[in-house]
Design a protein around this nucleic acid. Sequence first.
DNA 1: CTGAAAGCGCTTACAG
DNA 2: CTGAAAGCGCTTACAG
Lengths: 343, 343
Amino acid sequence: MSIKVRATSFDIAHKAGVSQSTVSRALRDSPLVNPETREKIKQIALELNYKVDKNASNLRQQQSRTLALLLFEDPTSDDSLINPFFLSMLGSITRASALAGYDLLVSFQNLSDDWHADFEDTNKADGLILLGYGDFVEYRDKLKKLEEQGTHFVRWGAHDVAHPGLAIGSDNFQGGFDITHHLLILGRRQFAFVGGADNRSPEFMNRYLGFKDALNRVGIQDFRQLDAISTEASGYEASNALLAENSKLDAIVCASDLIALGVIQALHDKGIRVPEDIAVVGYDNIPVSGFSSPKLTTVQQNTKAAGQILVDKLIKLISGKSVEPMLMPVELVVRESCGADMN
Amino acid sequence: MSIKVRATSFDIAHKAGVSQSTVSRALRDSPLVNPETREKIKQIALELNYKVDKNASNLRQQQSRTLALLLFEDPTSDDSLINPFFLSMLGSITRASALAGYDLLVSFQNLSDDWHADFEDTNKADGLILLGYGDFVEYRDKLKKLEEQGTHFVRWGAHDVAHPGLAIGSDNFQGGFDITHHLLILGRRQFAFVGGADNRSPEFMNRYLGFKDALNRVGIQDFRQLDAISTEASGYEASNALLAENSKLDAIVCASDLIALGVIQALHDKGIRVPEDIAVVGYDNIPVSGFSSPKLTTVQQNTKAAGQILVDKLIKLISGKSVEPMLMPVELVVRESCGADMN
DNA sequence: CTGAAAGCGCTTACAG
DNA sequence: CTGAAAGCGCTTACAG
């Protein structure tokens, strides 16, 4: 392996017979420098394989042109599996950052980490994108600290004036409403919702509220709700608990696809047919949902646009512009598990 | 939003009544500094919410404690979808980096980009992890450049003394052999392999060679091979081309799960039963493969260990230690699409 | 054990 | 249009 000798701007200055300041200006395309000089300098830089030292440049400019993506995992999830929904956002965030000329640091965080202080405070990143949170109540305290320190950050989730920071999220209430409404149209009447409906997970809560509203509007006051976190195992368990109650059921609305997959598995294991006996629907439209049997009817969030928007808003925030929160529309994806093609 | 005022080591020095050098030493746990002084300094640092400026620290130390993960996508793939196999490695790489005390920059690369010069040369990263490549022939030239510049890098793939740099990969030959052998045991005799078997994609090539070897060992010289890239669409197309040939077939070995999914879809559309009429197997064990119908028999690579190993080897490389390439074992995952439970 | 000083490699206000 | 100089915030060799 060859020894690495990095050229500095002084080396170029020497070769070009100009001062180091002129080199710096030329490479930054400053209009102050003579076009011919600039070309000569750029040529030499190329020959020497010169690259600006980012540490020096960043130190001098007091910025990093880097964004940090902090991913909070559900503490209970298998550590080899990342939530597929976040994964799909990772792609668009990475692309949007690159497009805007920012590098992207990616980090998985646990609530126990001292995460709130690690990136922007060390000048490694100009701002943070927060995805997921585990338990919202604990999370909120950390957000408050971030805000107090003047850190620039955006988060994916439900915006709420009561919560610190700017949130971009999709319309979970509408999604919960739409998919429940769809089941009502298909004639289902005996409902259960599986997913934690408390302030520990505001997304699930809003989906639940949409679910409830759809039922109330047609006069249904009677339904079941069971807590579950977003894993197949949790859905499986909740489903069994539900069946043990012996309540009459013809539709189960799940707060996520992962939960729905577990619920369907549990029903299969008991010999209950989906969707013939009980319709089951999910939320997120993760890749697997198009392949399960039956294929999941679910709600699609626009992850591609979401990533782009998170990045754009954060960059605006960094440059001191004012930024509005945003609620993104959702789309119902009808497949088999709702029983739509039974009619 | 509060105005951000970052404390520097001078601020702490002032408050503590010591010199700035002592502050730096104390925060780095240098044994040179008096324990009481150290504690006092640490206390003040905490109060002022002081964090070492990484740009300054990195500049001074000429290192970044950062790794860059460069992900090359198949140029033909839908840009909203990342290869699920890489995604699963992303998790373990991120975790392993954090554990080793390195930050992780993530970037998607196109072959057209000037990627080979962007991270280590700017001192933003101490080393690179390369995942995927698109076309290996073009890729190889870039690798050569990286090596010439003395960049530290490891890549996921087949190690070959003829190729620049250090590769960690799984045993694709063995995987191709094992899964084909499994089909032979189940009584299949008329084979096709779907996946590009040329030097543009060495992984596929090795899987193909394993496939071929398994057949040759039992005296089968006659089989079909069709090119395909790792997408469902490409598998679908190849499958139709195969059927159009009217050759007798009872088993299709696919170079990836994505291809297998497309092949199965094409067979379904023609009313051909899988695995009754034709067995179809994949490679990668992506999450979807456990949910397709029929569920895919496939080959599992140990992505969790792989990510960890890539990070470990790269860090060794950075610290100037000698490092060996590695071939990781694979595991056959038997589900339904091979027809194992028909016997 | 501590401090004064040099220097990492840039960018940019200042002077010409 | 160009150069000399200051300074970003650290780490560490040197001197005591």
